[in-house]
Design a protein around this nucleic acid. Structure first.
Length: 788
RNA sequence: GGCCUCAUAGUCUAGUGGCAAAACGGCUCGUUUACACCGAGCAGUCCGCAGUUCGAUUCUGCGUGGGGCCACCA
């Protein structure tokens, strides 16, 4: 595409360039390189839907980093990953094909998941390609730099390998965990699938007895059917009404169980009577409470949502029936003081609308509590951009209070690689992808009993082995992404670890970043990254978060087709610093940035009228030297900021340079000299202008290249500029920009004067004195303004 | 409820312990041989309150509003 033929920049031009980039693999990673390696661990987007505008913009930023680092002489590892594991994929599949894994069976359901993933994955990859992201490769594969899928056998094998290691190091254990259970769908669900609604429910005031004094106490509850699981009665220590109860024992009504009465800050004075019964069917916090108090939880609800033997006379009833029955019993015994209608925040299943029940099940845990200090130490070795984001990690570290439950009772995720026979666990060798739910146990798998190795499977020929059906928490996969991109363990990974940069959103610091540091520590004892870059969010035009319910989600494809990638990229970096605050999306303002794109095109068209002089003119005029020095200063400034992942401030300055210095003043000032139609200037002076015009344009394009690579490449092709090296920083004289500003000031004054006098800007003007400090530029000023 | 973070023209963003700035939109005027996706110009109680200070938009505290995370709801 010739520069002259381009009237306006358009997405059609972009399409040709990006297609070429995508197919030619010119950014391919060379693992045998002698250059220093710069590696970027990108956040594999979840493709339960196609990627959204936030992805488009934050990946553009990462592309700025990658292209800049290439210019600085690094071999840049910048692979695309796609996250395809986990519950959101399953939910999207269930919705799209209107199927249920429980009716369809695991095998068939997984096939449907794959079908969904194919569509969303290829559409997402296309968006990245059109954005001009310089990933090492646009082909899926297993080699360094190629697109990786977290559900590929290779990735899943790595996940399983790390689990096998952790298990052997005794960092994995099994313990009970209370799971969110949807009784309608008969499955455990994730916390994120719970929605809370204010539902009217009945608050019951129930009589308990104090064993020591025989007196009655009244306790309020919305869940009277759980009296059978009550483990303790608590009140707040500031509550004067109950001070005498501390250390005494309460007897539960109907069931007659003795439970201690204690002070606890969890109890609120204003709620109900100020006395609360603590039941072991709440959620995670209940487990904590019971552990803290050294109480044994009683579980009274079965998997199918019915009450079990612990519920005595309620056994076999569903929860709501049980609640009715116990109220009836309490009334009969005159133990129910009163009932109040209250609005109560109730956890519901997002999908089925059923009230969530909490059911205790055995799950695998990864130890993390013992390593909080180590992770903190590692974090201290990492550079955070911006520095404030480190606090998010630190406050999370402070608040971790249980180990990490890593097993899930779902389907489309990495299977947990083990088999069981009673209390024995068979752990396979590393290096292969295992699907125990449909494979038989390998004969050389190691057999563990209570954590200690007691032999191999073949030593126990009589045992029957059951394949594990559970899968890993998605974060267990995601938290080794940085190991995957450097193909750990390998000779390459040894020299490429720690990975140079982790770029990610602030909302997943406590998950992705934290878990990666933890897992990286277990594997290497080192920090996983040198730098961490944390960004904020893209909001809608009104400053609201984008969400399906608000119907304000913006599809990047729409912008790519209508306005194009270059405008989107330029806007995103001009609009604000996304590490400091959220950016509000604005179509209007994105379109406005088209002006800058076209200004660059037009400046380039002007400059290319003149040939770049060869050899370089020996004498440059003072005006030319000044403006060259000016952009040398800008080069240094830009480099210093790019190096700190700040592209926003330089982008603002560069754009300002383009409009307010280069186009409006340098070009206006030297136009006459460049054309030199009346031969007012010497040939040397004219050539000096040609040279400087090219110099300024070339440098400007080079500095802008990481941000708008397509536009600069199109212009660069014509001018034979290759953007593969960042310009050398040159020393300049001081006071460059004040002097340039004085010229600008002078020009503006003349233009204003002419306007006030109603004369054309081309017309000559008399009685203008050129100030002493501008004497060096007199000839250009006279020619430009027609001074007599 | 706790913690973190942000708050500047109609809009959206820079910036500063002592004159507050760009862009978009609006309005006025103009067209100069790279550019009408052009040029020149016009318009602001820097969220509220209190404190520190000779002086606060800038520093500190509180409040209000947006964003994020965590917890809770017997």
């Amino acid at each position: 595409m010739k520069l002259k033929e381009i009237k306006n920049w358009s997405p059609e031009i972009e399409k040709k360039i990006t297609q070429h980039w995508t197919n030619s693999e010119q950014f391919k990673f060379n693992s045998n390189t002698k250059k220093p390696i710069y590696s970027i661990d990108t956040p594999p987007p979840y493709v339960n839907t196609t990627i959204h505008i936030g992805h488009a913009i934050t990946y553009s930023y990462m592309d700025f980093f990658a292209r800049y680092k290439r210019m600085k002489g690094f071999e840049v590892l910048f692979p695309l990953g796609i996250d395809r594991n986990g519950i959101p994929i399953e939910i999207a599949t269930e919705k799209k094909f209107k199927i249920s894994p429980f009716k369809l069976g695991r095998d068939k359901f997984i096939e449907y998941c794959k079908k969904l993933l194919e569509e969303t994955t290829s559409e997402s990859i296309d968006t990245f390609s059109r954005l001009g992201i310089s990933f090492n490769s646009y082909n899926e594969g297993d080699k360094i730099g190629e697109i990786y899928l977290t559900d590929s056998p290779e990735y899943r094998t790595l996940t399983q390998n790390t689990f096998i290691d952790l298990f052997r190091k005794e960092l994995i254990y099994e313990d009970t965990r209370i799971n969110n259970y949807d009784p309608k769908l008969q499955t455990t669900i994730a916390d994120s699938e719970i929605e809370y609604k204010e539902i009217s429910s009945i608050f019951n005031y129930i009589k308990f007895k104090v064993k020591e004094t025989g007196k009655e106490i009244i306790i309020g509850t919305t869940r009277p059917e759980l009296i059978c699981t009550c483990g303790m009665i608590i009140y707040n220590q500031k509550d004067k009404r109950y001070q005498s109860l501390n250390g005494k024992t309460a007897i539960t009504p109907i069931f007659g169980k003795e439970v201690p009465i204690r002070e606890h800050p969890l109890a609120e004075i204003e709620k109900g009577t100020g006395l609360a019964m603590m039941c072991s069917a709440g959620d995670l916090s209940d487990i904590q409470f019971f552990r803290e108090m050294n109480l044994k939880p009683t579980i009274a609800i079965n998997k199918d949502g019915t009450m079990n033997e612990h519920a005595g006379l309620l056994q076999g009833l569903k929860i709501k029936e049980a609640r009715k029955k116990i109220i009836g019993e309490l009334k009969k015994e005159n133990l129910l003081v009163k009932q109040e209608q209250i609005m109560h925040r109730t956890p519901l299943s997002e999908r089925s609308g059923a009230e969530i029940e909490f059911i205790e099940m055995s799950e695998f845990y990864l130890k993390q509590l013992d390593f909080k200090k180590e992770v903190q130490k590692i974090a201290n070795k990492i550079n955070f951009y911006p520095l404030e984001s480190k606090k998010i990690l630190e406050s999370w570290l402070d608040s971790i209070s249980i180990d990490w439950p890593i097993s899930r009772r779902r389907f489309y995720a990495t299977p947990i690689p083990l088999w069981r026979s009673g209390a024995l666990i068979a752990l396979p060798e590393k290096g292969k992808y295992y699907e125990p739910w449909k494979e038989s146990v390998p004969q050389n798998a190691e057999v563990f009993e209570n954590g200690s190795l007691i032999g191999k499977v073949k030593d126990f020929p009589d045992k029957k082995w059951q394949g594990e059906t559970r899968v890993f928490d998605t974060w267990f996969d995601s938290s080794i992404s940085e190991l995957n991109i450097i193909k750990y363990p390998s000779t390459f990974s040894k020299k490429a670890y720690p990975v140079s940069l982790r770029a990610q959103g602030k909302e997943i610091v406590r998950t992705w970043l934290y878990y990666t540091l933890l897992r990286g520590y277990f594997e290497t004892k080192k920090p996983a990254f040198k730098d961490v870059w944390i960004h904020q969010h893209i909001l809608d035009a009104k400053g609201r978060k984008m969400s399906k319910s608000l119907n304000n989600i913006i599809d990047p494809q729409d912008i790519l087709k209508n306005e194009g990638a270059e405008v989107l990229r330029l806007w995103s970096i001009i609009e604000g610093d996304i590490t400091k605050q959220d950016l509000s999306f604005s179509r209007e303002r994105i379109k406005a940035e088209l002006k800058t794109i076209n200004k660059i095109l037009n400046v380039a068209k002007f400059v290319t009228q003149f040939k770049k002089p060869k050899p370089i003119p020996k004498h440059l005029t003072k005006t030319d030297k000044l403006f060259i020095d000016y952009i040398e200063e800008l080069t240094k400034f830009t480099d210093e900021h790019y190096d700190q992942y700040d592209f926003h401030y330089p982008a603002l300055k560069l754009r300002h340079f383009l409009w307010e210095t280069f186009a409006s003043h340098y070009i206006e000032l030297t136009k006459n000299r460049a054309y030199n139609k009346e031969n007012k200037f010497t040939k040397t002076e004219s050539l000096s202008a040609h040279y400087t015009l090219h110099y300024l344009l070339e440098r400007f394009l080079t500095l802008m290249y990481p941000i708008i690579p397509q536009l600069t490449t199109v212009i660069g092709k014509e001018l034979k500029i290759k953007f593969n090296e960042y310009p050398k920083i040159k020393k300049t004289k001081t006071n460059i920009s004040p002097l340039v500003n004085r010229i600008i000031q002078f020009n503006k004054e003349i233009w204003k004067k002419k306007k006030d006098q109603g004369i054309s800007l081309r017309a000559e003007i008399k009685n203008i004195k050129i100030p002493k400090y501008l004497k060096d530029f007199e000839k250009d000023l006279r020619a430009c303004h027609g001074l007599n």
